[in-house]
Write a protein that binds this DNA or RNA. Sequence first.
DNA 1: CTGAAAGCGCTTACAG
DNA 2: CTGAAAGCGCTTACAG
Lengths: 341, 341
Amino acid sequence: MAGIKDVAELAGVSVATVSRALSGNGKVSAAAKERVQAAAESLGYVVSYNASSLASGRSRNIGLVVPTVGRWFFSTVLQGATSALIDAGYDLTLYNTGGEQRHRDSVFSELLLRKRLDGVITVTLKLEPEEIEQLASVGKPVVAIGGYIPQIDTIWVDDFNIAALATEHLIGLGHREVSFLGGTEEFEVDFKLGSAREDGFEFAMDQAEVPIRRDWLLTADFSTAGAYQKVRNVLASPCRRPTGIVCASDEMAFGAILAARDLGLRVPEDVSVIGIDGHELGELLGLTTIAQDPGGQGAAAVGKLLTLLGETDPASGPDPTAGFFPTEFTSRSSTGAPPRT
Amino acid sequence: MAGIKDVAELAGVSVATVSRALSGNGKVSAAAKERVQAAAESLGYVVSYNASSLASGRSRNIGLVVPTVGRWFFSTVLQGATSALIDAGYDLTLYNTGGEQRHRDSVFSELLLRKRLDGVITVTLKLEPEEIEQLASVGKPVVAIGGYIPQIDTIWVDDFNIAALATEHLIGLGHREVSFLGGTEEFEVDFKLGSAREDGFEFAMDQAEVPIRRDWLLTADFSTAGAYQKVRNVLASPCRRPTGIVCASDEMAFGAILAARDLGLRVPEDVSVIGIDGHELGELLGLTTIAQDPGGQGAAAVGKLLTLLGETDPASGPDPTAGFFPTEFTSRSSTGAPPRT
DNA sequence: CTGAAAGCGCTTACAG
DNA sequence: CTGAAAGCGCTTACAG
């Protein structure tokens, strides 16, 4: 475990020069720099991040707060963020609150404020006004993904209009019996998108003057299995059943498709299903969806954070927080005209 | 940003006493402790981890190295590890090599050795002998998940026998035309399980004296979509096609099932599919599989690491590295007798 | 049980 | 361009 002193000795310079040569801060003669690098190399010296952070106040480490890592959206955001970060030479410390308030609070009070973090990315995390203030007072940049948080740079898709668009797609195909599958109350707290999407659905339905049936406003836990149960119940109804289902996520849409199949219903001849996400599996299952590229969102959040930290050229491309993150309507075989009755 | 001095001043004690009162190390009178805690509370004081780590040599932070986070096995391991860690008050720094050698090497040389880590968990990472030596020389405990690494505590399932068991299940049902879907060369490097599972398959086939067709030894990238293509090709063959497919992962088994369905083949009447993993979706798709509980493996690795760090009661339960991690054969509807010809 | 002080391994004004 | 030295905010023998 060679230290900076060992390198200085071997290179025949002071530790100050070693620090400058290796970090790139300050002036060092080419000759000295070369000797330092050679010495560091031969000793296998790597700077102690703890000491460096303590002395400089910068830790080259950013925190990512997620409610779970077990859902496609979040693991994909994480994947995108880590790739972007590794190239910048930053570490990623993961805070998985597990949706538990207790963990969420401790993340906040302890982990974010005084930890070894230069900045934080929060994913669909609801922040209280005083928490935002706290973060601002500490001076650590924060970038949020999902939902809208006042005063904080946010990467988000236009949930309301996406859901409205998905709904209009079904209405445009002739559907009048449309169900919406959103997130349960419990999940909306974290994911915080359920209601915007449901609002978009209701708006589109109202615009088209298609009546909304309250008992077709379903909710699930964003899992495929959860969605399967709910959709199966509604499709198995002996009375009228919806001919189209707008799902707030692709994973839930998969559940809807599987439920229909298991009931012997054909998709889309008997029932159309549309999702929101752009999950890889969607292609195999022929799912019509609105893709939102979570990996790109993760990378964009990293880019924005790095800019705030003064790392990247601020002129590099448009500000990802300036508007909504782009989405793409992807038409496949899970949607079609409703069955004639 | 109150510091330890502020707390000491407010509590009317020295910083040494504050440190001892808050960390629990060393003796402090009940009265002093109480005053310190009250002072810390009212100032919103949180210890600086960098300073603490530098001074003590312990950082309450562990590293997790994965080749990707976009595959179910890995995100589930991660989920299990984070839950276990958050309760212990440890941070988790994530190193996602993305399967790139360049990232993998930098993780090794820079990140692990001199970073703010007390220990490391590697998931299906192949380590060179000199790397193991390096780790040992630094004295940082390492626990591996998946595969076997000499001299390092390893949490792993019995890949060989699991695959053999899966194969025997199909043979026992009467199948003689059995295909194996493993990982591509490229993936085996990281995942490092492909060959053990293929070996198990071949062993079981040989034992039962069922001939192995080389052109039915398929490989894919462990993704559902990749598996779909390969299996579709083999099932679409105008000549003989396999009546059973042993898949090295559930996600690939999903691809196999979907490929069969899309070709109009019934599962299991026309073709049986068995996976390895225990993915949640397996229940919905009726997938017979051998569940290996990756979340539990992640938690077990954390537990082992914490023990090595002297954190937990060593007497708490059996050593998870003492044998193979338990797996569970889960019979569902994707396997049955082969079609009569 | 408690405090003064050294030290963890760097970074960075400051003075040359 | 370079070095001596202070300081980052803690922890922990050491001596009471």
